[in-house]
Simulated scan of single mutants.
Amino acid sequence: MTAMRDETTGPVVAPREYTYRVRGRYPHDPQAFTQGLVWDDGVFYESVGLYGRSELRRVEAATGRVLDRRPLGQEYWAEGIALVGDLLYQLTWRQKRGFVHRKDDLARIGEFGIDGEGWGLAEHGGELIMSDGTDELYRPATGGRAQRSLARVTSGGSPVTRLNELQMAGGELYANVWYSDRVARIDPGTGVVTSWIDLSGLNPYPRDRCPDGAVLNGIAHDPSGDRLFVTGKLWPTLYEIEVVPCVEQF
């Protein structure tokens, strides 16, 4: 790609391309419409979507066994989650509300407002980053503050929309792109996509027998072991992966 220049932001650099190597496979509930995934001390916290089935779960990582669950209510469609200290923040899709849960028992102890739709959520430096399906990233309206825009996400100078599940890892924001097998790695300060990870081939379903909506969604990072986990909506498997270059790049 030929670098372009914007007088205010400087040269536009083509993102690097990566693929993956599977390091481990773990059971995952094929009835879970995964909207958000977080790792913490040997367990996953998982936000499960769909009306009438939305809930927050604590899941044993090694076995996929659901240790605890808290339904949201028939009127809510759950979306992304993030862990800040001992609190879990959970978005809803179109209900303009987010919920705050205690980590230890998943009890709901508070809520916050959402302008527009809620999609993905991640923690960065004790603060939250939210996506809403557009190319924009936000700071949600928690702690009595108003929701505010942080950055617009671009790849090679073009906007990237349908940003779904979010996860910070190694100082970068990882983002699923809905109905895509690609994950963007984003500079959270500028919104620029620094690289793409092609996860084609991970979906365990044959294309002609894939349940509706069973797409890649769910990213978790274990910082102590620097391990990266991914799964999808209605997938029976959760994968530990290593990100590797597609080709030698300079």
Rank of each mutant, 00 (worst) to 15 (best):
T8K: 14
T8C: 13
T9Y: 11
P11A: 02
A14C: 09
E17S: 09
V22S: 03
R23C: 14
Y26R: 01
Y26N: 03
P30D: 02
V38Q: 11
W39N: 04
D40T: 08
G49C: 06
L50D: 10
Y51L: 11
Y51A: 12
G52W: 04
R53L: 11
S54C: 07
S54W: 10
R58A: 03
E60R: 10
A62I: 09
A62C: 11
R65C: 13
R65A: 12
D68Y: 03
E75S: 12
Y76M: 01
Y76S: 01
W77F: 15
E79P: 07
L83K: 02
V84R: 04
G85I: 09
L87Q: 12
L88T: 04
W93H: 12
Q95E: 14
R97E: 14
F99P: 00
V100K: 01
H101W: 00
K103A: 08
L106D: 02
R108L: 08
R108C: 04
I109M: 02
G110K: 03
E111D: 10
G113L: 07
G116C: 12
E117A: 10
G118N: 07
W119I: 10
A122T: 07
I129D: 12
D132Y: 08
E136M: 15
L137R: 03
R139F: 12
R139N: 11
G143M: 01
G143C: 03
G143V: 01
R145G: 08
R148T: 10
R148C: 06
S149M: 15
L150D: 07
A151Y: 08
R152V: 04
V153Y: 04
V153W: 01
T154C: 12
G157T: 00
G157S: 00
L163R: 02
G171Y: 04
Y174F: 14
Y174G: 03
N176T: 13
D181N: 15
D181E: 14
R182Q: 15
R182K: 15
A184M: 09
V192S: 04
T194Y: 00
I197F: 00
I197V: 15
L199E: 04
N203I: 03
P204W: 03
Y205F: 12
Y205C: 06
R207Y: 13
P211E: 02
A214S: 04
A214D: 09
V215M: 12
V215E: 14
A220G: 10
D222V: 00
D226Q: 13
R227N: 05
L228G: 02
V230C: 14
T231A: 12
K233T: 14
W235I: 04
W235M: 02
P236M: 02
E240Y: 08
E242A: 14
V243H: 10
V244M: 06
F250Q: 10
